[in-house]
Design a protein around this nucleic acid. Structure first.
Lengths: 201, 201
DNA sequence: GTCTATAACCGGATAGAC
DNA sequence: GTCTATCCGGTTATAGAC
């Protein structure tokens, strides 16, 4: 059995993630946790503080992207495959995380400060790897920024835009969309490998 | 000079789009429009009604995607080029529209009903075009659903995720990100054409 | 630690004068 | 059409008993 603090965190996670900060109600979190509002404030003095806890925890989960360090003998194809699969596996379990994080980040961009902590993607390393691969004739030239952004976009966007996409591309069929998501990892990888393959017309 | 109703709509647009429904305040809209709350309610009885007006108008703007009909003698490459350029031009002017629409759609997916009106992307037509192109040896095989979703993802995502991407990929440099967006259209098109080009390894 | 009760405030909506 | 003043419900937060 969870202790009270864990109960609260689980409830807050649920409510904040699907209502956002402004839409969330302390009452609803309390109900969800099976306690009352007063106790909520006893554990986390304010709504803001409770939210910060949930948000930063969520951000840490989404963040693995930024840790994408390349090994000493990097194989770009292998790297892409692993990255897509790993990230996709996470999102299958927490499909609403990206929308939540992006939403709150847009409302308050300054919140990122302190969460990222000067952590940046090592663009120069990536560029070096790409240049080397290009020189070996393994892939065609791309800007590393566009490559990274493309990778992330293809993975995350379907989760953020599910309602529209499901309605308009899959005729509203829920199961069809789930099915689509299941094959999505492999499709993204193929798409990428094709785009990177050296032969051009 | 705008009349009062137009003033209100302009103000509401601004406030709703960057605070969302829950975060928006009627007072702020009134201030922004240079009038008072009472007058706001005189023109649009409730916050909900005013919001619906702004939201459906925004949705209509974002929607051109769905109207993507292919001509009788369709050239897929040309179609992609035009589509990306047109959509991108819209987003450069209204960069916050997608985040707004996606956010509200996630909070209340049922809202789409009546806005879309059974309008679906003609997947079968697209599939037919793709199959024909594949048979002619012009492109490599792809599922039409993945193709459409990829197209939309690559275009929209950078606008939705600007805060994170700018920070982590561009070291927080605002001008660098704008610059990135300027070259983005062409980069997406190239990426697509490469992925679709028939030669495979 | 956990509860009930309540304070303090905020925000959408209305009444009514001009 | 536009304003000032006000109502009223809901929401965060605290006091204080157990």
């Amino acid at each position: 059995m969870m202790n009270t603090e864990e109960q609260i965190l689980a409830a807050a996670r649920k409510v904040f993630i699907n209502k956002g900060f402004d839409g969330a109600r302390m009452q609803e979190i309390a109900d969800e946790a099976g306690i009352n509002k007063a106790l909520l404030h006893y554990y986390f003095r304010t709504k803001e503080k409770l939210f910060e806890r949930i948000f930063s925890e969520s951000f840490q989960l989404i963040k693995p992207v930024f840790n994408l360090a390349l090994g000493p003998e990097p194989d770009l194809h292998q790297f892409i495959r692993q990255f897509v699969n790993a990230y996709h596996a996470l999102l299958k379990q927490m499909p609403f995380l990206p929308q939540f994080v992006l939403q709150e980040l847009n409302r308050n961009p300054g919140r990122m400060i302190g969460l990222i902590g000067k952590q940046q993607i090592p663009m120069n390393d990536i560029k070096r790897v790409i240049d080397a691969e290009v020189k070996k004739g393994n892939i065609s030239a791309v800007s590393p920024e566009n490559l990274i952004v493309n990778l992330i976009s293809l993975i995350i966007f379907p989760f953020v835009a599910r309602p529209v996409l499901q309605e308009v591309v899959f005729g509203g069929d829920d199961a069809a969309f789930d099915n689509f998501l299941n094959g999505r990892s492999e499709s993204i990888i193929q798409f990428f490998l094709l785009a990177l393959s050296p032969e051009k017309s």
